[in-house]
Design a protein around this nucleic acid. Sequence first.
DNA 1: AAGTGGTCTAGACCACATC
DNA 2: ATGTGGTCTAGACCACTTT
Lengths: 270, 270
Amino acid sequence: MVMPKNAARNNQAYLLNKSGAQAIAEHKIDKSSSLPAYAQMANILRQKISTGAYAPGDRLPAESALAKTFGVSAMTARQAVTVLEEEGLVRRVQGSGTFVRKIGVAASYFGLDALGQVLADEANLAVRIVNASVKRTPGLEKTLLGLKDSDPVILVERVIMHRDEPFTLHVSFTSFDPASPTVEAMLDTVVLTGLIFQEGYSNFKKGELRLIPTILGPREARLLRMEPGRSVFKLEHLFHDFDDRPAAFGWFIVSHEKMPLVSRVGVWHD
Amino acid sequence: MVMPKNAARNNQAYLLNKSGAQAIAEHKIDKSSSLPAYAQMANILRQKISTGAYAPGDRLPAESALAKTFGVSAMTARQAVTVLEEEGLVRRVQGSGTFVRKIGVAASYFGLDALGQVLADEANLAVRIVNASVKRTPGLEKTLLGLKDSDPVILVERVIMHRDEPFTLHVSFTSFDPASPTVEAMLDTVVLTGLIFQEGYSNFKKGELRLIPTILGPREARLLRMEPGRSVFKLEHLFHDFDDRPAAFGWFIVSHEKMPLVSRVGVWHD
DNA sequence: AAGTGGTCTAGACCACATC
DNA sequence: ATGTGGTCTAGACCACTTT
């Protein structure tokens, strides 16, 4: 399976912006167009895939042949094929050729765009801290943070409100390090700014996230103004600092209505 | 998105910058190595990001500067930066520069690798059809398939067994088209081979998938040998044929243990 | 041996952002 | 005006697969 690439997503809107229908019909590149040659080529090739002219399993013409056909250099032809590869439509095999992919359920991936958009919309956000305390009893979070059962951890629970409606409940555990800033500072910098919002600097080097279906408990339901017993997403996270120490464990509770996970595969734009 | 510009804010990263700059002062590409030059460059740059020498928000040296520093052509330097961009570590801004990304929860994506691996492992798969019938009563599936309430649809329910354990329950609806092959043929070709397994040709041009948390019903639980009331994933799919007609609606029921959804962000390999 | 994709060069010009 | 990334050329050689 091809990993989704940021470049492909960024190009998407651009490529579709101005597609020359006449260019597609004539199988040629309009070099005076504002649309780059490689994008025009990609559009034409995608069109042929969408109509079945190039069917799943078929081999595309060699990049050198495409370059000759379209009257561009080999590098430009290669760039065009790369667009389709990043869209997951074709698969390159060195020494053999480029083949049209067959679509299937497993080819999909899900991004957290909805979550990102809400968290970036700071003007309409409000954070309600429902609990901020120091926890001294044992728990899974201490294992994950590399702490002893007796070590204290900072527990913070927030409801993130979006347009005056509860959007998600965030529960986070951070190790209580006396050498670090105070609890208040950590609340505002490390965990909140570093994890939730997009602006500013991050103190984290890497993170692991896990998506789990779970059932809404009574307290969670009350905080989110939802019915208890509903099935919702639990998005767990464990972030590590630049010394590779696990520093922030926690999770977001959010419904699939607020954070739809949708994926599209195959050709969705001719 | 907002562009962070104030470079000297993270003191720690600033110190690391000075000490780290000497440690990696080599900056040399081994052109006799089997590892391509662009990959070696990407490794070095990634290393600098992982140590904080290039901190989130910082601007990378211009591609032309990198090319000069590493003694390669501009295209090769560009390819190196592209690697980091595709890993989600940096973000390019035309006319402005390339900036180290700040990691966050929303930057993650989830692939169905686990599902794909199981469905590709045909030697250890067995499909048990638990229901195959023609449904003539109204239902959501008819709306999605563009059919009238009175139109018949083929309903097939299968338990896909992997290594003699129930892996997932697949429920699918397909329009009953008299011009198409018979029910039996459709079971084996269109829906099963086209949707589930990877080999062979597909009859679908595009598909939309939706991931939903749901609660296991009694019948589903029995078929999957799990406890009812558990929270599991429901992976809905709607595939369209090459005439853009919706042709296969349905869903997979699978637990998060069988299909873990994990995502990693940031630098995980130095 | 021939054909394919993968890497690389040394330039060029363009689009865009910043000063 | 300068500097940045984005596109493009016309070659070259390499690694790999197929014939």
